[in-house]
Simulated assay, not measured.
Amino acid sequence: MAKKQQTAAARHYDVLLSPHITEKASLLAEHNAVIFKVAGDASKPQIKEAVEAIYNKKVAGVNTLVVKGKSKRWKGKPYRRSDMKKAIVTLAEGEMIDVTEGVS
Results as ranks from 00 to 15, higher is better:
His12Gln: 12
His12Phe: 15
His12Ala: 13
Tyr13Ser: 13
Asp14Lys: 09
Asp14Met: 14
Asp14Glu: 14
Val15Pro: 03
Val15Asp: 02
Val15Ser: 01
Val15Trp: 03
Leu16Val: 09
Leu16Phe: 11
Leu16Tyr: 09
Leu17Ile: 15
Ser18Gln: 05
Ser18Phe: 09
Ser18Thr: 08
Pro19Ala: 13
His20Asn: 07
His20Asp: 14
His20Arg: 10
His20Glu: 07
Ile21Asp: 06
Ile21Ala: 05
Ile21Arg: 07
Ile21Leu: 07
Ile21Thr: 07
Thr22Ser: 12
Thr22Val: 08
Thr22Lys: 07
Glu23Val: 12
Lys24His: 03
Ala25Lys: 02
Ala25Val: 01
Ser26Ala: 12
Ser26Leu: 14
Leu28Gln: 06
Ala29Phe: 09
Ala29Tyr: 12
Ala29Gly: 06
Glu30Arg: 08
Glu30Val: 00
Glu30Gly: 09
His31Ile: 02
His31Phe: 05
His31Tyr: 08
Asn32Val: 13
Asn32Asp: 14
Ala33Trp: 09
Ala33Gly: 10
Val34Met: 06
Ile35Phe: 11
Ile35Gly: 00
Ile35Gln: 13
Phe36Trp: 14
Phe36Val: 11
Lys37Glu: 15
Lys37Val: 15
Lys37Trp: 15
Lys37Thr: 13
Val38Trp: 06
Val38Thr: 05
Ala39Thr: 04
Ala39Gln: 03
Asp41Tyr: 15
Asp41Thr: 12
Ala42Leu: 14
Ala42Cys: 14
Ser43Glu: 08
Ser43Asp: 05
Lys44Thr: 13
Lys44Gly: 01
Lys44Trp: 11
Pro45Lys: 06
Gln46Leu: 08
Gln46Gly: 12
Ile47Tyr: 05
Ile47Met: 04
Ile47Ser: 04
Lys48Gly: 12
Glu49Ile: 09
Glu49Pro: 04
Ala50Asp: 02
Ala50Pro: 01
Ala50Gly: 03
Val51Ser: 05
Val51Gly: 01
Val51Pro: 00
Val51Arg: 00
Glu52Phe: 10
Glu52Tyr: 09
Glu52Cys: 10
Ala53Thr: 00
Ala53Asp: 03
Ala53Leu: 13
Tyr55Ser: 01
Tyr55Met: 07
Asn56Ala: 12
Asn56Leu: 15
Lys57Pro: 00
Lys57Arg: 01
Lys57Met: 07
Val59Gly: 00
Ala60Arg: 10
Ala60Asp: 05
Gly61His: 01
Gly61Asp: 13
Gly61Met: 05
Val62Ala: 05
Val62Pro: 02
Asn63Gly: 02
Thr64Ile: 15
Thr64Leu: 11
Thr64Pro: 00
Thr64Gln: 02
Val66Arg: 00
Val66Thr: 07
Val67Arg: 01
Val67Glu: 00
Val67Cys: 09
Lys68Met: 07
Lys68Trp: 13
Gly69Tyr: 04
Gly69His: 11
Gly69Pro: 02
Lys70Val: 06
Lys70His: 00
Lys70Thr: 00
Lys70Gly: 02
Lys70Phe: 12
Ser71Asp: 13
Ser71Ala: 07
Ser71Met: 15
Lys72Thr: 00
Arg73Glu: 03
Arg73Phe: 15
Trp74Pro: 01
Trp74Leu: 10
Trp74Ser: 15
Lys75Ser: 06
Gly76Ser: 00
Lys77Leu: 10
Lys77Pro: 10
Pro78Val: 07
Pro78Glu: 07
Pro78His: 05
Tyr79Ala: 02
Arg80Tyr: 11
Arg80His: 11
Arg81Thr: 15
Arg81His: 12
Ser82Gln: 00
Ser82Asp: 15
Ser82Thr: 12
Met84Tyr: 10
Met84Asn: 00
Lys85Gln: 13
Lys86Glu: 11
